[in-house]
Amino acid sequence: MSVEGAGLIRGFIETGRNLVGSYVDPRRWVTVQYPEERRATPENSRVYPFLVYDGADPEEGLRCVSCKICEKECPPQCIYIVPAQDERGRPRKHPAIFDIDISVCMSCQICVEVCPFDSIKMDQAYAWDREDRFGGLLLHKADLARPNRYYRELHPAEARVVDEHLARERELRESGVRAAVRASLPGSGEPGGGT
């Protein structure tokens, strides 16, 4: 037979131990002191998309060719693209406007999966608090552009594969063999597929 109050006393000892222990040993803490102290995000975590650019100029170096595939695929339709035009009014392979409304974005990563040019990737920055909940959460091309270096920091392994792939592409394009390869091996020249 159990002693009266033994369960109560065990409970009080447990909570008392926590009470004293959390002063003595901060490793017991189950929370972090957020703004000062942050948990490292896992490599595969994702928040909102960003646009990758090569080189130094975020405008000219954008990989995006404004093919609008991501715009069409985006389930909540938070992407808005207007292609740039040259002086004769023909569409250039460059976006004039590329907006993402992150108040609508559901972080599904489908835009990343469908992009044939490895130009849109998922960001890991999660602090998106803004004073203005409409304009402040509508990101424009300039807000979205990040250098390739940034992508490499976020996803080193994945970025290496993408970089190798893009380099091979460029090599093929420059050596002029591209057309021949295309002709002989239909389907193998399919770009994208970052992983």
Partner: peptide, 13 residues
């Protein structure tokens, strides 16, 4: 604060 400590967190600080 004490409730926080009992639950292994620092409480308002």
């Amino acid at each position: 604060k004490l409730l926080g400590r009992i639950q292994n967190r620092p409480g308002p600080n």
